[in-house]
Amino acid sequence: MDETQVMIITGTRKGIGKYLAHYYVSKGFIVIGCSRGEVDYKLSGYQHFCLDVSDEKKVKQMIAKIRKTYGRLDVLINNAGIASMNHILLTPAHTVHNILNTNVVGTFLFCREAAKLMQKNKYGRIVNTSTVATPLKLEGEAIYAASKAAILSFTEIIARELANFGITVNSVGPTPVETDLIRSVPKEKMDNLLARQAISRFGTFEDISNVIDFFIKKESEFVTGQNIYLGGI
């Protein structure tokens, strides 16, 4: 593959997605990102779409634009995600819908539409985002963890459905990384959580891109349907 690779990253306004957009542009990818809000940065080689990842029409339009502009898509990183700390007895149904829409429906829509474009070249790399909150069974994060458990199942099954098209699908499960997502978790809770990892520290953005680098390598064509947790869970 000599030509410049085209990559979509969802949720690029801040946090992990913002880092990934900068990182992959610096590695020579054409990066197309999205989030509900505008981004406060400009990068050559980066284009932004303002959309909600669960909006089917908007997602289709974004991929149609990419198809017309570049005629190809090599990599999709489904990073956009939201969490909400709450005891089940205090969780409004509305919150549940929001989390499932962004984390599950959004990931599904991007995988479906991206795969349609990727299959043209019989090549594609999809990386979804899971979390250690699922295997650690974190209290207060029932819906968030469940939404990411859905991502694991979904990743394993579409890896099989898309294998014939040369598309691999994997997921990366970060430990806590200091972004807005975990800002509201009390310190004591966080310390307990880190103590349950084999390596007890916060994750870094680089820890995550390192795993993604491996999944999206051309040579990783035989790696699919897998999830890698960071931190030794």
Binding site: E56, K60, R67, K68, K116
Partner: peptide, 17 residues
């Protein structure tokens, strides 16, 4: 189906599923 969807999109400038 995917190829037809894409060519309809190109021809009629409308996305359908």
């Amino acid at each position: 189906i995917v190829a037809v969807e894409q060519s309809v999109e190109d021809e009629f400038e409308t996305s359908i599923i």
